[in-house]
Computed example of a mutant assay.
Amino acid sequence: MMPFIKHFVRAVYLPLCFASIATVAQAQTVDYDGDNYLKINVPALALKNISLQYERPVGQQISVALNVRYAPTSDLPFKQAFKNIIDDDEVSKQIDGLRTGNFVIAPEFRYYTGGQAGRGFYIAPYVRYARYTAELPFRYDYNGTEKIFPLSGSLNAFSGGVMIGTQFKLSRLLYLDWWIIGGTYGTSSGRIDGRAPLDENEQQALRNELDEFKNGFIDTKYQVDQNGATVDLDGKWVTARLGLALGIRF
Protein backbone atom coordinates (compact mmCIF):
# COMPACT_ATOMS: atom_id res chain seq x y z
CA MET A 1 0.00 0.00 0.00
CA MET A 2 2.77 2.44 0.84
CA PRO A 3 4.44 2.42 -2.61
CA PHE A 4 1.05 3.09 -4.21
CA ILE A 5 0.45 6.10 -1.97
CA LYS A 6 3.90 7.49 -2.77
CA HIS A 7 3.27 7.14 -6.51
CA PHE A 8 -0.16 8.77 -6.14
CA VAL A 9 1.31 11.74 -4.29
CA ARG A 10 4.03 12.21 -6.90
CA ALA A 11 1.76 11.71 -9.89
CA VAL A 12 -1.46 13.49 -8.83
CA TYR A 13 -1.46 15.30 -5.49
CA LEU A 14 1.75 17.32 -5.83
CA PRO A 15 0.93 18.60 -9.36
CA LEU A 16 -2.53 19.67 -8.13
CA CYS A 17 -0.98 21.60 -5.25
CA PHE A 18 1.46 23.38 -7.55
CA ALA A 19 -1.36 24.17 -9.96
CA SER A 20 -3.47 25.63 -7.15
CA ILE A 21 -0.59 27.80 -5.95
CA ALA A 22 0.05 29.03 -9.49
CA THR A 23 -3.65 29.85 -9.95
CA VAL A 24 -3.75 31.89 -6.74
CA ALA A 25 -0.55 33.74 -7.68
CA GLN A 26 -1.92 34.53 -11.13
CA ALA A 27 -5.22 35.79 -9.67
CA GLN A 28 -3.32 38.14 -7.38
CA THR A 29 -1.60 39.73 -10.37
CA VAL A 30 -4.86 40.42 -12.24
CA ASP A 31 -6.31 43.90 -11.63
CA TYR A 32 -9.83 43.88 -10.24
CA ASP A 33 -11.73 47.09 -10.98
CA GLY A 34 -14.38 46.58 -8.31
CA ASP A 35 -18.17 46.86 -8.25
CA ASN A 36 -18.52 50.39 -6.88
CA TYR A 37 -18.53 53.78 -8.62
CA LEU A 38 -18.12 57.06 -6.75
CA LYS A 39 -18.61 60.21 -8.85
CA ILE A 40 -18.79 63.99 -8.55
CA ASN A 41 -20.79 66.22 -10.89
CA VAL A 42 -18.13 68.69 -12.04
CA PRO A 43 -20.33 71.47 -13.58
CA ALA A 44 -22.39 71.62 -10.37
CA LEU A 45 -19.35 73.02 -8.57
CA ALA A 46 -19.72 76.23 -10.60
CA LEU A 47 -23.24 76.55 -9.14
CA LYS A 48 -21.84 76.16 -5.60
CA ASN A 49 -23.31 72.64 -5.38
CA ILE A 50 -21.49 69.53 -4.21
CA SER A 51 -23.20 66.68 -6.07
CA LEU A 52 -21.98 63.13 -5.38
CA GLN A 53 -23.28 59.85 -6.75
CA TYR A 54 -22.66 56.27 -5.67
CA GLU A 55 -23.49 53.51 -8.17
CA ARG A 56 -23.33 49.72 -7.91
CA PRO A 57 -24.25 47.07 -10.52
CA VAL A 58 -26.81 44.52 -9.31
CA GLY A 59 -27.26 42.58 -12.56
CA GLN A 60 -25.84 42.08 -16.04
CA GLN A 61 -27.46 45.28 -17.36
CA ILE A 62 -28.83 46.83 -14.18
CA SER A 63 -27.39 49.06 -11.49
CA VAL A 64 -28.70 51.16 -8.64
CA ALA A 65 -27.42 54.61 -7.71
CA LEU A 66 -27.87 57.26 -5.06
CA ASN A 67 -27.26 60.93 -5.77
CA VAL A 68 -26.76 63.40 -2.91
CA ARG A 69 -26.39 67.14 -3.49
CA TYR A 70 -25.66 69.90 -1.00
CA ALA A 71 -25.20 73.63 -1.33
CA PRO A 72 -24.56 75.87 1.69
CA THR A 73 -26.52 79.09 1.96
CA SER A 74 -24.97 81.68 -0.36
CA ASP A 75 -25.82 84.30 -2.99
CA LEU A 76 -27.64 83.09 -6.08
CA PRO A 77 -24.99 81.95 -8.62
CA PHE A 78 -24.99 83.65 -12.04
CA LYS A 79 -27.50 86.16 -10.70
CA GLN A 80 -27.22 88.63 -13.58
CA ALA A 81 -27.66 85.92 -16.23
CA PHE A 82 -30.71 84.67 -14.36
CA LYS A 83 -32.21 88.17 -14.28
CA ASN A 84 -31.60 88.60 -18.01
CA ILE A 85 -33.37 85.34 -18.80
CA ILE A 86 -36.41 86.15 -16.65
CA ASP A 87 -36.63 89.75 -17.86
CA ASP A 88 -39.08 90.72 -15.11
CA ASP A 89 -38.44 93.87 -13.10
CA GLU A 90 -40.38 92.67 -10.06
CA VAL A 91 -38.52 89.35 -9.87
CA SER A 92 -35.16 91.00 -10.60
CA LYS A 93 -35.70 93.47 -7.77
CA GLN A 94 -36.42 90.71 -5.27
CA ILE A 95 -33.56 88.34 -6.11
CA ASP A 96 -30.84 90.97 -5.71
CA GLY A 97 -30.35 90.07 -2.06
CA LEU A 98 -31.57 86.47 -2.23
CA ARG A 99 -29.44 83.86 -0.44
CA THR A 100 -30.32 80.22 -0.89
CA GLY A 101 -29.09 76.71 -0.13
CA ASN A 102 -30.33 73.20 -0.84
CA PHE A 103 -30.14 69.52 0.00
CA VAL A 104 -31.23 66.87 -2.52
CA ILE A 105 -31.32 63.08 -2.35
CA ALA A 106 -32.31 60.98 -5.38
CA PRO A 107 -32.36 57.14 -5.55
CA GLU A 108 -31.98 55.92 -9.13
CA PHE A 109 -32.42 52.70 -11.13
CA ARG A 110 -30.33 52.27 -14.29
CA TYR A 111 -30.81 49.98 -17.26
CA TYR A 112 -27.78 49.80 -19.59
CA THR A 113 -28.74 49.07 -23.19
CA GLY A 114 -25.32 47.73 -24.21
CA GLY A 115 -25.46 44.57 -22.12
CA GLN A 116 -23.00 45.54 -19.38
CA ALA A 117 -23.91 47.50 -16.26
CA GLY A 118 -21.65 50.51 -15.77
CA ARG A 119 -20.73 50.97 -19.43
CA GLY A 120 -22.51 52.63 -22.36
CA PHE A 121 -25.95 54.20 -22.77
CA TYR A 122 -28.56 53.85 -20.03
CA ILE A 123 -32.11 54.82 -19.10
CA ALA A 124 -32.54 55.86 -15.49
CA PRO A 125 -35.88 56.43 -13.72
CA TYR A 126 -35.48 58.12 -10.33
CA VAL A 127 -37.30 59.78 -7.47
CA ARG A 128 -36.10 62.92 -5.72
CA TYR A 129 -36.57 64.78 -2.47
CA ALA A 130 -35.27 68.35 -2.32
CA ARG A 131 -35.22 70.94 0.44
CA TYR A 132 -34.41 74.55 -0.39
CA THR A 133 -33.75 77.28 2.14
CA ALA A 134 -33.98 80.98 1.39
CA GLU A 135 -33.18 84.32 2.98
CA LEU A 136 -34.97 87.10 1.12
CA PRO A 137 -34.82 90.83 1.88
CA PHE A 138 -38.25 91.52 0.38
CA ARG A 139 -38.44 95.00 -1.13
CA TYR A 140 -41.67 97.00 -1.20
CA ASP A 141 -42.66 100.59 -1.92
CA TYR A 142 -43.92 102.69 0.99
CA ASN A 143 -44.99 106.25 0.08
CA GLY A 144 -42.39 106.42 -2.68
CA THR A 145 -39.62 104.98 -0.51
CA GLU A 146 -38.23 101.46 -0.89
CA LYS A 147 -38.36 99.52 2.34
CA ILE A 148 -37.03 96.04 3.09
CA PHE A 149 -38.83 93.35 5.03
CA PRO A 150 -36.65 90.29 5.85
CA LEU A 151 -38.21 86.94 4.95
CA SER A 152 -36.70 83.48 5.45
CA GLY A 153 -37.89 79.91 5.28
CA SER A 154 -37.78 76.70 3.29
CA LEU A 155 -39.48 74.77 0.50
CA ASN A 156 -39.75 70.99 0.11
CA ALA A 157 -40.23 69.28 -3.26
CA PHE A 158 -41.09 65.64 -4.02
CA SER A 159 -40.74 64.56 -7.63
CA GLY A 160 -39.87 61.80 -10.04
CA GLY A 161 -38.35 61.63 -13.48
CA VAL A 162 -36.37 59.79 -16.13
CA MET A 163 -32.87 60.51 -17.40
CA ILE A 164 -30.86 59.19 -20.32
CA GLY A 165 -27.09 59.19 -20.28
CA THR A 166 -23.92 57.32 -21.09
CA GLN A 167 -20.91 56.24 -19.06
CA PHE A 168 -17.38 55.91 -20.48
CA LYS A 169 -14.32 54.14 -19.18
CA LEU A 170 -11.39 56.58 -19.39
CA SER A 171 -8.80 54.35 -17.75
CA ARG A 172 -8.69 51.26 -15.56
CA LEU A 173 -10.28 53.08 -12.63
CA LEU A 174 -11.44 56.43 -14.04
CA TYR A 175 -14.94 56.86 -15.51
CA LEU A 176 -16.95 59.69 -17.06
CA ASP A 177 -20.74 59.71 -16.64
CA TRP A 178 -22.60 62.10 -18.97
CA TRP A 179 -26.13 62.88 -17.78
CA ILE A 180 -27.39 63.87 -21.21
CA ILE A 181 -30.91 65.00 -20.32
CA GLY A 182 -33.48 64.30 -17.65
CA GLY A 183 -36.87 65.71 -16.73
CA THR A 184 -38.43 65.89 -13.28
CA TYR A 185 -42.03 66.58 -12.33
CA GLY A 186 -43.64 66.76 -8.90
CA THR A 187 -45.08 68.99 -6.22
CA SER A 188 -43.63 71.50 -3.78
CA SER A 189 -44.73 73.25 -0.61
CA GLY A 190 -43.09 75.58 1.84
CA ARG A 191 -43.26 78.69 3.95
CA ILE A 192 -41.28 81.88 4.36
CA ASP A 193 -42.00 84.42 7.05
CA GLY A 194 -40.64 87.39 8.92
CA ARG A 195 -41.30 89.13 12.21
CA ALA A 196 -41.22 92.91 12.57
CA PRO A 197 -43.70 95.55 13.79
CA LEU A 198 -45.77 97.04 10.95
CA ASP A 199 -48.29 99.88 11.05
CA GLU A 200 -51.44 99.70 8.93
CA ASN A 201 -49.95 101.60 6.01
CA GLU A 202 -46.85 99.39 5.95
CA GLN A 203 -49.05 96.31 6.07
CA GLN A 204 -51.01 97.43 3.03
CA ALA A 205 -47.88 98.38 1.10
CA LEU A 206 -46.41 94.94 1.82
CA ARG A 207 -49.63 93.24 0.69
CA ASN A 208 -49.57 95.21 -2.56
CA GLU A 209 -46.01 94.08 -3.29
CA LEU A 210 -46.80 90.46 -2.46
CA ASP A 211 -49.74 90.63 -4.91
CA GLU A 212 -47.33 91.73 -7.66
CA PHE A 213 -45.08 88.79 -6.90
CA LYS A 214 -47.76 86.15 -7.47
CA ASN A 215 -47.59 83.82 -10.48
CA GLY A 216 -49.63 81.03 -11.99
CA PHE A 217 -47.06 78.31 -11.40
CA ILE A 218 -46.78 78.39 -7.60
CA ASP A 219 -49.84 79.16 -5.50
CA THR A 220 -48.96 81.88 -2.99
CA LYS A 221 -51.04 82.64 0.08
CA TYR A 222 -49.93 85.29 2.51
CA GLN A 223 -50.98 86.80 5.79
CA VAL A 224 -49.78 90.21 6.91
CA ASP A 225 -50.53 91.76 10.30
CA GLN A 226 -48.98 94.14 12.79
CA ASN A 227 -46.42 91.52 13.85
CA GLY A 228 -45.07 90.60 10.41
CA ALA A 229 -45.88 88.40 7.41
CA THR A 230 -46.21 84.73 6.51
CA VAL A 231 -46.18 83.41 2.94
CA ASP A 232 -47.27 79.83 2.16
CA LEU A 233 -46.11 78.30 -1.12
CA ASP A 234 -47.71 75.34 -2.86
CA GLY A 235 -47.46 74.26 -6.47
CA LYS A 236 -45.90 72.22 -9.25
CA TRP A 237 -42.21 71.35 -9.41
CA VAL A 238 -40.61 70.92 -12.83
CA THR A 239 -36.84 70.76 -13.35
CA ALA A 240 -34.29 69.51 -15.87
CA ARG A 241 -31.38 67.28 -14.95
CA LEU A 242 -28.00 67.62 -16.67
CA GLY A 243 -24.47 66.82 -15.60
CA LEU A 244 -21.00 65.52 -16.29
CA ALA A 245 -19.73 63.35 -13.47
CA LEU A 246 -16.15 62.21 -13.07
CA GLY A 247 -15.57 59.18 -10.88
CA ILE A 248 -13.54 56.20 -9.85
CA ARG A 249 -14.35 52.51 -9.75
CA PHE A 250 -13.24 50.52 -6.73
Rank of each mutant, 00 (worst) to 15 (best):
A25C: 09
Q26E: 09
Q26D: 10
A27Q: 15
A27T: 12
A27H: 14
Q28R: 15
T29K: 14
D31Q: 13
D33E: 08
D35S: 10
D35L: 03
N36Q: 10
L38A: 08
K39G: 06
V42W: 07
V42Q: 04
A44R: 15
A44L: 07
L45W: 01
A46L: 13
A46M: 08
L47N: 13
L47V: 11
L47Q: 11
L47P: 06
K48H: 12
K48I: 01
K48V: 01
K48Y: 07
K48T: 07
K48Q: 11
N49Q: 15
S51N: 09
P57G: 05
P57C: 02
P57L: 04
G59N: 07
G59D: 08
G59E: 04
G59T: 01
Q60C: 05
Q60H: 11
Q60I: 08
I62W: 15
I62G: 08
V64H: 01
A65W: 01
N67R: 06
N67D: 11
V68H: 07
V68N: 05
R69M: 10
Y70A: 10
A71R: 12
T73K: 13
T73H: 02
S74D: 10
P77Y: 02
F78M: 09
K79F: 02
Q80L: 05
F82E: 01
K83C: 03
I86T: 06
D87T: 03
D88T: 04
V91G: 00
V91Y: 08
V91H: 00
S92T: 13
K93P: 02
K93C: 00
I95Y: 00
G97I: 04
G97L: 02
L98N: 06
R99K: 15
R99V: 03
R99C: 04
